[in-house]
Design a protein around this nucleic acid. Structure first.
Lengths: 172, 172
DNA sequence: CTTTATTTCCGAAAATTATTCAGAAAAATA
DNA sequence: TATTTTTCTGAATAATTTTCGGAAATAAAG
């Protein structure tokens, strides 16, 4: 039986698979500015950067394409939409098999009260950031949702008294 | 001595001082969508909402003016900008006078590694979310910055192994 | 060091979108 | 029902985004 030889179209990237693209000072300044205020338009950015509008446009396109900018979002005032209570919930599981962990992560992510979920090193397994309207609502969430998940052993709840600093922008 | 009677221009707001403005289903849907993707333009929103472009425009203007939308920002991929390590640091203070608390809050907010700082109920005084490139950098931050603040008694550090859910959008 | 190729940058045209506005429709109030 | 107030709309205008050909700058090759 003969070897089945044929042509094949193959894409050779000029870059290593996980290459970090190089960010020059212009890119960094764009990221800095857009992290603070993404309503700045190309004209304003061009002025601040001493570049042309077309250049700014192309830079931003690339920063999005390459994944530096994940998304542009509106940040709401949580108190105006009735999320007055923020809790950090430390969760301890009964078991730590891969299966247990994945199941917990999958289920907890479905709860709308859960804004963030991190698996942690150290004293507890997961830390959750929970946003609810008030303590009663948190209580219901804890009893009827979080505590009912299989393999949840203990939950310790800590509540935010005041928000001193809250920043989505990384310094660059 | 006669009473000094004069006319005075006074603004009577038709609303109580801290009134929560009413959000109708259109407002809520706009907020829902913009929390996920603020690059949606008025035309696209108008189509999704079955409203005119001008209506959408006016709604968004009001939502910003009334403070529901605090700001529009770019969310970056932290790993691409070399923030591979996220730590939650529980901080215990030696004293709890108003002065001590304010001083800590003020100073800690100045550190670029500190993304968030919350004063908490319960077992510890503050929880910080720290973003650094790696463990060495965190270590330096802890030794040279956080631990040197006056009145810091103890810091317990917990590190993120994996980020299961991370959402800036509140369900509405 | 010069030539050639590659990348980045720019201005101007074209396409698209934001903003304004006067009046229509709808809703609330009297 | 009449009147006022609010919301909504389409169309005009202003502003912005996007595209594109070629210039400038940079890197690579001869």
């Amino acid at each position: 039986m003969p070897l089945n030889l044929r042509w094949q179209i193959v894409f050779f990237s000029p870059y290593p698979f996980n290459m970090q693209h190089h960010l020059d000072p212009v890119d960094l300044e764009i990221l800095r500015l857009l992290q603070k205020d993404a309503t700045l338009n190309n004209k304003e950015l061009a002025f601040k950067l001493n570049k042309s509008i077309a250049t700014v446009h192309e830079r931003i396109r690339r920063l999005k394409e390459q994944g530096y900018i994940q998304r542009i979002v509106a940040i709401l005032d949580r108190k105006k939409i009735n999320r007055n209570l923020i809790a950090f919930s430390h969760v301890f599981l009964k078991a730590h098999t891969a299966e247990t962990l994945v199941e917990f992560e999958t289920e907890v992510a479905k709860f709308s009260e859960v804004m963030e979920c991190f698996q942690m090193t150290g004293a507890y397994d997961f830390i959750l950031r929970i946003a609810t309207s008030d303590m009663d609502t948190y209580h219901l969430f804890l009893r009827n949702k979080l505590a009912t998940l299989p393999n949840v052993s203990t939950v310790q709840s800590f509540f935010v008294l005041s928000e001193t600093k809250s920043d989505t922008a990384y310094p660059l």
